[in-house]
Nucleic acid binder design. Sequence first.
DNA 1: TTTATTTTTAATCAAATGATTAAATAATTT
DNA 2: AAATTATTTAATCATTTGATTAAAAATAAA
Lengths: 224, 224
Amino acid sequence: MILPLSPLNDFDVAKAKKVAAKDLSAEEKIKAAAKKIFTQKGFAATRTRDIAEEAGMNLALLNYYFRSKQKLFDIIMLENFKKLIHGIVIEVVDENASMEQKLEKVVEAYIDFLILNPDLPFFILNELRNNPAAIASTISDEINQVRNNFFKQLQKGDKKSKLPPMEPFHFLANMIGLTVFPFVGKPMLQRVTNVSDAKFNALMQERKKLIPVWMKAIMSMKGN
Amino acid sequence: MILPLSPLNDFDVAKAKKVAAKDLSAEEKIKAAAKKIFTQKGFAATRTRDIAEEAGMNLALLNYYFRSKQKLFDIIMLENFKKLIHGIVIEVVDENASMEQKLEKVVEAYIDFLILNPDLPFFILNELRNNPAAIASTISDEINQVRNNFFKQLQKGDKKSKLPPMEPFHFLANMIGLTVFPFVGKPMLQRVTNVSDAKFNALMQERKKLIPVWMKAIMSMKGN
DNA sequence: TTTATTTTTAATCAAATGATTAAATAATTT
DNA sequence: AAATTATTTAATCATTTGATTAAAAATAAA
């Protein structure tokens, strides 16, 4: 295999072949380790040696399989991002569901997901700051869907749930703020309120029921 | 001055003397540049050369005045942190103010502050992740004050405002989520909702009035 | 003005870090 | 089994980056 010597050749030829052998392929081990460390520490604070060590692999394998730290990061980034928005768009765009139904479904699915991936939102928010354009372009389709469907529903109000129209920005900020912020600010909140990890998760379970109720209360206020 | 040659000598002797000369001292220029870049990009992603360039100063001056990147960062970090919690604790701990009054005061003061320092909360959240213990110890006094005063008021309910008791964690998560999250998630929210910087600030002005109303609506719901 | 002190600069160092290479090993194909 | 191809390793490179140094310039003290 001459790939490392010819940087411009395509790279996936080698991959497909040996995958699915043994327990977990070297490539998969590296990817898993990279996901863990990149997600925890972000791009800049992650060293390729840390990834190799976490994967129990030789450092050179990282470049053998992924060419560069940046390329590896891009792959992780994209997968993380898709994982995070997967499901939510489909739920939210559904024409037949009422606002109330959407609220309940999305919040529950999201909190379940975040309990399993507590570092993901901070990671996304961080990298979105460093690279707004590149990432946004990969998901512009989903954004447009949300704009064309859900935002319209929001702005004309929801008859079934008796919820008046609401400015989409405020709705999103509230919804994500209430749902995602506890995970983004977890270290701070835990420190101030003196809450253990177990208690934190229990509180998040509570919020699955509470947030939809709160959101409806917010939307029912006059002046929105 | 022999400081650069004797690393263990005290460092502040030199400082005090020439400060307040010219327009802005070299030390102040570096500090301002460091604050800007550290706050924007975090510790790991910031290069000392970037700071020197931003300040228009020679790279060696950074070490001359501050000894190391880490020491400079610690100073910025502490100032940022104090700036962020300044005021809020005094407001919130005041025994005589009702919950309602506190809500209105704190939200307004905070949003005004955040409009001027939009990158600060993300910076704090980020560094709090990397170094939970060190930072927390510098503000444990303030945290205890909040616990002993405000959380008690929360948990016994507020008669004047007719607000029933609420779990402190949920209250904090909601309050900070609604107030601070828009700034933390600014790039994401702006992208999805297609909102300009000017519009964003206008929406934040709106939220100064809305969030207290929303918070009262949330707290008035049964089941908290 | 002369001397001492402080500040600034340019050059350089040492360590960390992303990446590469050539050789060794393992697996696959013929 | 022999030949080919793919994977893995240890050693090394080149660059970046935080830090230092010695000398020059600016300022203050005598």
